[in-house]
């Protein structure tokens, strides 16, 4: 029978993580489904389980200088309610599952699950988020882009825990998140789109765009984003067709039980086009 550990503090958790091949469990909302067993039987976890959600060290939401630090054990509901949470992330988090899930599920868990359809992940890509990874030997930071290597695959080492999601605080007067789900609530994404940008006096200072559920990992192209930087809004509008073309080459979705490849691709590009064309109107409102 597998064991379950409930460490007294983070130090003990890190020790257990190193010494046993245990499965870290924070909210558990993905793991409990993944290892689901017959009614009445405990889930069939492949190894010992390490409970994390009770650890005080992982429960904090804080602003550290120009970085927002979202503790790995903070439930999504609290992240959505935190005033510092960037609008694009708030919108994404609010659209994840339903209230009962958001009361326990964590953003770090969403990231570790590494599903290309993860709503939180799509927003985090556009925000240039990083993961704080801690082991008994110390802490390192990895960008989300480098952290997720494929569907369900990350660079998390067997002795490490994600201890926080780090979101750079930066000016962004453009923040858009759009999920196209299998229904209007309590849904998984057929695809998602996030945009984070700053427009100053009619000039695009920076623009980050990401697309979820249209490839094995979230799609982001810093090269194409750079093509928009320093341009006027009129120039970006004029560039729109060629920007759409850039992403058309990067977006390679699949058919599955939730949607079709053709729909995902068409709608992802429609959302992009509509975003670029509506940019002027958006900025006017600021």
């Amino acid at each position: 029978m597998v064991r379950a550990f409930k460490p007294a503090d983070l130090t003990e958790a890190l020790r257990l993580r190193k010494e046993t091949a245990c499965v870290p469990l924070a909210g558990g909302t993905d793991l409990m489904v993944k290892y689901r067993n017959w009614t009445g039987l405990p889930p069939a976890f492949p190894g010992d389980v390490l409970f994390l959600s009770h650890l005080k060290e992982l429960q904090t939401l804080e602003r550290r200088g120009e970085t927002l630090r979202i503790g790995a054990g903070v439930p999504l509901a609290d992240i959505a309610a935190w005033p510092e949470t960037p609008a694009v992330l708030r919108e994404a988090v609010r659209g994840i599952a339903a209230p009962a899930i958001r009361n326990v599920a964590t953003l770090a868990g969403n990231v570790c699950n590494a599903s290309p359809a993860g709503d939180g992940i799509c927003a985090l890509y556009a925000l240039d988020a990083r993961l704080e990874l801690t082991s008994v030997d110390g802490t390192r930071e990895v960008s989300i882009l480098a952290f997720i290597t494929g569907p369900g695959r990350t660079v998390l080492r067997r002795d490490e825990l994600v201890t926080a999601v780090l979101v750079p605080r930066r000016a962004a007067n453009i923040q858009v998140f759009r999920k196209v789900g299998t229904r209007k609530a309590n849904a998984l994404a057929k695809l998602s789109f996030a945009a984070v940008g700053e427009v100053k006096e009619g000039i695009v200072d920076a623009m980050a765009l990401s697309f979820g559920a249209v490839g094995p990992t979230v799609v982001r192209s810093t090269e194409t984003e750079k093509r928009m930087a320093g341009k006027t809004l009129a120039e970006v509008t004029a560039l729109a067709p060629s920007i759409v073309e850039d992403y058309a080459a990067l977006i390679v979705p699949i058919d599955d039980q939730r949607s079709t490849a053709a729909y995902r691709k068409t709608v992802a590009l429609n959302l992009l086009k509509s975003f670029l064309e509506g940019l002027k109107e958006k900025v006017k409102g600021i």
Partner: peptide, 16 residues
């Protein structure tokens, strides 16, 4: 049946 979980066989919620 390809949609065989409640996640993928989507019946209306209160929001639909």
């Amino acid at each position: 049946f390809r949609q065989h979980t409640l996640t993928d066989y989507t019946i209306p919620t209160a929001m639909d």
